[in-house]
Design a protein around this nucleic acid. Sequence first.
DNA 1: CCAGTAAATGAATGGCGTTCATTTATGTCT
DNA 2: AGACATAAATGAACGCCATTCATTTACTGG
Lengths: 232, 232
Amino acid sequence: MPAPTPAPSALPTGPPAAAGARRRAGRPTAAILDQDGITTAALELISSKGYDGLTMAALARSLGVAPSALYNHVASKDDVLLLVEDHLAAMVDVTAFGVEPWDAAVRRWAWSYRDVFSEHTPLIPVIAVLPVANAPKTLAMYEAVTAGFRDAGFPEEKIISAIVALEAFVFGAAYDVTAPEDIFDAGSLAEQVPNFTAAVDRLALENHPRPTDVAFSLGLEALITGFGALRG
Amino acid sequence: MPAPTPAPSALPTGPPAAAGARRRAGRPTAAILDQDGITTAALELISSKGYDGLTMAALARSLGVAPSALYNHVASKDDVLLLVEDHLAAMVDVTAFGVEPWDAAVRRWAWSYRDVFSEHTPLIPVIAVLPVANAPKTLAMYEAVTAGFRDAGFPEEKIISAIVALEAFVFGAAYDVTAPEDIFDAGSLAEQVPNFTAAVDRLALENHPRPTDVAFSLGLEALITGFGALRG
DNA sequence: CCAGTAAATGAATGGCGTTCATTTATGTCT
DNA sequence: AGACATAAATGAACGCCATTCATTTACTGG
């Protein structure tokens, strides 16, 4: 009869932290991984190394685990991105719906939504195609927004379309935030596009701290005004 | 004295097409590759195999060339995507500016822009960060749009912001086109999000052929109306 | 208590973008 | 005309990536 597990190295090392002595093969006494831990580690990795640094190997490494172990808890790397997305969706501010007037609530929601995802644009292609059934927190966000629109007197058949349109604008604007400042510098071709160059220069004269915010505000206010007129 | 090149296989094979006999190493008599050819081949590959099929190896293969040869003409795969993007920008319809009224011209431009890029969403992350100086045809599109706004009496300092906002909406909407039909099916969580589910069902009752077009139209008309009011 | 399943390791796989040494042809300078 | 830099191709190699599989070990339900 084999002696009881010979204490691999020490007491269970508090947090599911780094790699000390190598773990031997086989199921460990206490599970090391779960989806929450994977999500948290992924977020930390993203914030320290960016999305380029988010590899399955790096993720496993930060969890003190072999890469293949991850696949007991997620089906793929896209699955990890989905977990991250859903976590972020919960950070979007929907608290104004039902409290502040409709237009103020939409404003708060949209700005918050854009700010959260502007740091996570690589998720946008994933979200855009993501069936909501797989993302409970995202779904909860939609529920809050939908209720806000309904309570504000929006015709029910237009609510989803309006949200989809707002969301499209938010995602596009999130990319815009990440663009380099000189993105509109035409360089040597400037003379060939005089109207464009003039408009770019004219905007620069205004000296806005964040031009991208000006464009976002301009578009968002137009959408809010336009949609506001649909309410009954 | 070596005999003049011993006719590698046959007469120059018309189009720069497929791979017959292997070419021997060294610079060929006539250049096989150029950026135009690479762009065309990339577009064909994308349309036949999708963006997953667009690999440097596959691209080289379709041009009858070794992968490393591509790097004499482009710096990276992103560079190829940039070439493709610029080609597509030239397909966006800006002809209505200066011909039709401003609102109709914006409408035509935006629908066309969305339609072109909805088939090429993997380019969007590239475009969003792309300095226009590297994309002459894209720049030409901006010039036409800017001129249209100016001639319509737009205050010059708001032109770029308005275009940026419209573009953000267009890009987001382009993703939306690619989403699966049942993206809003909450599945087993439906009971937990009654307002959302009701709104989704209510929209479905309308039986629109393309719900995504309804959302796009709704948002676009709001932007056009809102921005139209800025004209002097 | 025993079978089935869950959770880990570690080795292996195939594909990817990219680099580099090498070969051959072109174009320019003297 | 000859020399030489440069351009454009090949082919071998690199490192990284996500993912799979056989294997080991531990937990759990009948």
